[in-house]
Nucleic acid binder design. Structure first.
Lengths: 193, 193
DNA sequence: GTCTATAGGATGATAGAC
DNA sequence: GTCTATCATCCTATAGAC
């Protein structure tokens, strides 16, 4: 313990922000300690190296997934299908409130560090799996036509979110995201009994 | 001119490979000139800085898009719908032949440098637009039910490719990609008259 | 646990000869 | 256009006092 916010948490929180804003490679240890308001000695007291900071950031994302990404939209909506589109509407809001600079932090790290850090890749995969599980639990409450597996459909929902956010960021417009979500809705609706 | 392969082309080709293998930030000027077999003075003769090398790489991708990504699958298949899935089958092969380390180079650069280099972001957006146009030209040859816009559907196809490749790389398995493509096929088929 | 100070190497970029 | 040589800075990581 070291005061109202523990030093380790300040370091992880600053790294989380910076990796999201600039990416992993573009963020220096010096940037992290500067934003956290600590010295590099403190960072290296808690973490062996920069990759271990990344691991802590990915564990933080995983812990925040249900309370931050799923609980608010699931509170707003009752219908399982509408809950899924409420989650996707929240991502749309993130695009708007960041002037289309929003990138999914997990998706960005998947492409940037997945190939070079196996430990990070496993944690990114776990984040994706938890995201799919939350969607699949709603899909399994729907009356789907035979042959439609909630887990497989949840992977499709994640695919559409990630691909839609990527295109919207590149296009600096919500249009590709909105179009993709509209097609997803048409498809999921067509699968209902 | 400077021999069988011009120096500038060697630099751009090496940078293209390295940005794809390691990403933009993780690639140093020294890596690029080493792989190209030239000295840094040559690189700075042709390019003002590293960002200008990135611009040349993105222009190279754009020029290669039709001949490398679309012509081969379009030669193999005649039916417009099967042409689209032949393109997507080629991406699946890239996943397999790279042991699931394949990342779409444009998608990766979209997330990594899109937010920091506006000139790169515009070129990435142009690459995406050309990709969508090639798909839309096939979709417009299909007899689609009313209200289905080829351009909007092409954005959905790109969304599914990018999101599916991302998940497959994180999962080190073709499964999330295959599931996503299967759902896309079910959806597109349902739109045919 | 936190600090100061710094090692040791890599980085992007430049100068100027040829 | 290509080369050698190098600057100035930044980087990750460490050592050791407190």
């Amino acid at each position: 313990m070291a005061g109202p916010v523990a030093t380790r948490d300040k370091i992880v929180g600053s790294a989380l922000e910076l990796f999201w804003e600039r990416g992993y490679e573009a963020t220096g240890i010096s940037d992290i300690v500067e934003r956290a308001g600590v010295r590099s000695g403190s960072l290296y007291h808690f973490f062996e190296n920069k990759e271990h900071v990344l691991v802590a950031v990915l564990e933080t994302y995983q812990a925040a997934l249900i309370p931050h990404i799923f609980d608010p939209p699931f509170q707003r909506e009752r219908d399982p299908l509408e809950r899924i589109f409420a989650v996707l509407a929240d991502y749309r809001n993130r695009l708007l409130t960041t002037a289309f600079k929003y990138r999914c932090p997990i998706g960005s790290l998947a492409l940037e560090v997945g190939p070079v850090s196996e430990r990070a890749r496993v944690l990114i995969d776990a984040n994706f799996a938890a995201w799919r599980a939350a969607i699949a639990s709603q899909l399994s409450q729907l009356r789907l036509r035979r042959g439609n597996d909630p887990a497989s459909l949840a992977a499709f929902v994640l695919t559409v979110m990630e691909g839609g956010v990527m295109q919207a960021a590149a296009h600096r417009s919500a249009e590709p995201y909105d179009e993709s979500i509209a097609h997803l809705r048409a498809y999921l609706t067509s699968l209902l009994k």
